[in-house]
């Protein structure tokens, strides 16, 4: 018992040390970027509408804080809805495709076909279907997230060692049990690959939706700031946006750490 606790502790401190080191380097690179940025403006004397000083960006974010928070909320809702819907549909479809060759033949070609159309090209159609606002944003997000999740889930489910199935069958396991206890857990690492790619794409999807069919959200603020040549606000919103996207990505990564601590990709700190 005591040994177990000690192991846990040492694991924890290894993680904690990793975290501090990461934070330090992140802070350092941020400082370097800011200093270079300030120096660039000072030395070359760029006008504020091309490249505002870092401080002007900070002030702009503070000035527009209420609006930014409100619209960031709208964007987040679109990202979440589109993403969750994509997961809810993509995973079962991937499972069906792996289980049944008929379903694969039926669904895979149209799936690939929709993927070959650039998502932005479908946006005008979505406006006709869903109108101006949240629904269109969610639809674009859904569509852009869907494919990577399907593909990586399929790859994960298929990558089971054939000998393992042989072993399970020699133990008399029905295929449902093989699926639940062997195939599915074995597919999780690959599935998380798709979920992480999709988490980054989800933000792109929501922004695309906001550019074309919305009067709210960070994408809309970006457009209007651009129209007003308010470059400081543009930079501010971009920074807020990237922070949002990072939080989302790391949330998925945290979920991955919790669900598959046993996988190779998660062991670096433990060893």
């Amino acid at each position: 018992m005591a040994e177990k606790e000690a192991k846990k502790l040492s694991l924890w401190s290894a993680n904690a040390r990793g975290w501090h080191v990461d934070a330090f380097w992140m802070f350092l690179s941020l400082v370097i970027v800011l200093v270079l940025w300030e120096a660039l403006v000072a030395v070359f004397g760029f006008p504020a509408h091309l490249l505002p000083r870092p401080l002007a960006v900070v002030y702009s974010v503070i000035d527009h804080w209420g609006t930014i928070v409100e619209n960031a909320g709208d964007t987040t809702v679109a990202v979440m809805l589109g993403y969750v819907l994509a997961v809810v549909f993509a995973v079962p479809i991937a499972i069906l495709i792996v289980i049944s060759p008929q379903v694969e033949r039926l669904l895979y070609p149209p799936l690939v076909a929709t993927q070959s159309i650039p998502k932005i090209a479908l946006a005008p159609l979505f406006i006709v279907w869903f109108g101006f606002g949240l629904e269109t944003k969610v639809a674009v997000t859904f569509l852009i997230c869907f494919f990577p999740i399907v593909v990586d889930t399929i790859v994960g489910l298929r990558s089971i060692d054939p000998s393992l199935i042989q072993l399970a069958r020699s133990m008399g396991a029905p295929s449902s049990r093989v699926f639940l206890k062997l195939r599915l857990p074995g597919a999780l690492p690959s599935m998380f690959g798709g979920l992480k790619v999709a988490s980054a794409l989800a933000v792109v999807g929501a922004l695309t939706g906001e550019y074309i069919a919305s009067d709210s959200g960070l994408g809309y603020i970006l457009l209007s700031a651009s129209g007003e040549m308010n470059t400081a606000l543009l930079f501010g919103v971009l920074i807020v946006l990237s922070v949002l996207a990072m939080i989302f990505f790391y949330a998925i990564e945290l979920l991955e750490k919790l669900l598959i601590p046993w996988h190779v990709s998660q062991r670096s700190h433990a060893q």
Binding site: D161, L167, A168, S170, A173, R177, K181, W262, H263
Partner: peptide, 28 residues
């Protein structure tokens, strides 16, 4: 019967003990 392969086919997400007990889980 008991089957053994060149690859040990241990499941990464199970502990050593739970891997041995896979025999039971697969048979219900």
């Amino acid at each position: 019967l008991g089957f053994a392969f060149q690859s040990d086919l241990l499941l990464d997400w199970r502990t050593v003990l739970r891997n041995v007990l896979l025999q039971c889980d697969m048979r219900g």
